[in-house]
């Protein structure tokens, strides 16, 4: 039942992007997202799209796979576009019943659609080429300065990585409990909203109890293996920048500079 969520799930293969330090990819993705708002012209978007195309090529992830993931959020994209299309005030160019399309709206909607698509594609390139573990490691490393202001950086990263590990387990469990309750005559397909919410109780209560039991067990198992927070821990897979990561940072910098130049020129 949860099979349809493929958006941005790690795609196992070997490529330059896969081998890049996750911190570079994280910083790069942020830089790219910002650049989408920096450039504000057709040539600018062309540049951003071109950059993305090169990244997709470098990632070795089949384009079809990436697009298939996009399908799930197509709906969201259409809604946003429609909102912008019909709800932006300005010069009316087309009218039907209560819907009024304006020139400004059309302009804005097209821009928004391009921006959103690039944004989603751009960030999914990161998640497609980076395992969740690497991602949390990168986050922990990049947020380290925040430790000085007492943000529990290590704990946050640990929590994220445990959550990621248990999501598939809890999904499987949901499926099992659901089947068991269906066997007891439960009806999860009711269209009536109140009935639907009520029917969730026999699913959610056991699920929460199980989650708490697992959390309890896991805490004990971690303690038994000498876990006592981030203090004094070493790393099995420490993050170390290599020369290709430096090159990647340089390319990013150039791209970003080009975006700013675009903004000034056009």
């Amino acid at each position: 039942m949860f099979d349809s969520i493929t958006l941005g799930q790690y795609y196992q293969t070997d490529s330059v992007l896969h081998r890049l330090d996750p911190r570079v990819k994280l910083v790069g993705t942020f830089a790219y997202l910002i650049s989408l708002f920096v450039v504000d012209s057709l040539p600018g978007y062309l540049l951003a799209a071109l950059f993305l195309a090169v990244m997709i090529k470098l990632s070795n992830v089949p384009f079809r796979y990436i697009v298939r993931g996009m399908k799930t959020i197509l709906f969201l994209l259409i809604i946003t576009v429609c909102f912008n299309l019909f709800l932006t005030p300005g010069e009316v160019i087309w009218e039907f019943w209560i819907f009024k399309m304006t020139r400004e709206g059309l302009n804005f909607a097209i821009k928004m659609a391009i921006r959103l698509s690039l944004l989603i594609l751009g960030s999914s390139i990161m998640t497609l080429t980076t395992t969740p573990t690497q991602l949390t490691d990168a986050l922990e490393s990049l947020m380290r300065p925040l430790k000085k202001v007492r943000v529990p950086v290590h704990e946050i990263a640990m929590m994220m990585s445990i959550a990621l590990r248990f999501i598939p387990i809890l999904m499987e469990e949901t499926d099992k409990i659901m089947k068991a309750q269906i066997a007891r005559g439960a009806d999860f397909e009711s269209r009536n909203l109140i009935k639907k919410i009520k029917s969730m109780v026999p699913l959610l209560v056991p699920l929460f109890i199980s989650a708490f039991r697992r959390a309890n067990d896991l805490a004990m198992a971690m303690e038994a293996r000498c876990y006592r927070g981030g203090e004094g821990r070493t790393k099995m897979k420490p993050l170390v920048y290599s020369s290709k990561d430096r090159v990647a940072y340089l390319i990013l910098l150039l791209f970003f500079a080009a975006c700013i130049a675009m903004r000034i020129l056009f």
Binding site: K176, A180, A183, G185, D187, P202, P206, I209
Partner: peptide, 27 residues
């Protein structure tokens, strides 16, 4: 009737009797 593995993981009501009533009520 199908009793799944570890069926106790599907108990949810406040007391035993209400839990057993769940199936019949669904019918």
């Amino acid at each position: 009737g199908l009793v799944f593995q570890y069926p106790e993981h599907q108990l949810f009501e406040v007391d035993v009797l209400s839990d057993v009533c769940y199936g019949p009520k669904n019918l």
